[in-house]
């Protein structure tokens, strides 16, 4: 059973697909891939648990600009496994250089669609 979740995303396709979904709150921010990870990290520090893997998908950070990460709506004590996973993910993200092709207008829809498919795979 899925927990009630907050999805941090910079992907308008995810925002539109999940905004009306039961049990889902969408926190949309038109920021970078890394900044989405940082928003999820901040939520973990506030006591939310990570629900999805921050490095989902094989299109690497720097190649795709889009990222969606789900955390629990419920807050508790700091969840150390979540903290470790999101911090490691940010460190891993920083290893990958940003490619300018990630900003290529002709690719944005496909990048968004793959990111949408990754987050929709949990339902």
């Amino acid at each position: 059973m899925l927990e009630r979740m907050v999805v941090f995303t910079n992907n308008p396709m995810v925002r539109d697909a999940l905004s009306q979904r039961d049990g889902c709150k969408v926190h949309y921010a038109p920021v970078s891939y890394r900044q989405i990870l940082c928003l999820a990290r901040d939520a973990v520090h506030q006591g939310h648990k990570l629900l999805t893997h921050p490095l989902s998908g094989s299109v690497k950070p720097g190649e795709t600009p889009y990222k969606s990460v789900a955390v629990s709506q419920e807050k508790g004590l700091l969840d150390l496994p979540s903290l470790s996973l999101i911090e490691n993910s940010i460190v891993t993200c920083d290893k990958f250089p940003i490619r300018s092709k990630s900003k290529d207008p002709s690719l944005q829809e496909d990048f968004q669609l793959v990111d949408l498919s990754l987050i929709m795979s949990i339902f």
Partner: peptide
């Protein structure tokens, strides 16, 4: 087995591995 979504999937006897 890869099982994450579009272009990230695998099938076992036709069943989506996720």
């Amino acid at each position: 087995l890869q099982s994450q979504g579009l272009l990230h999937d695998t099938y076992v006897y036709g069943v989506d591995a996720k």
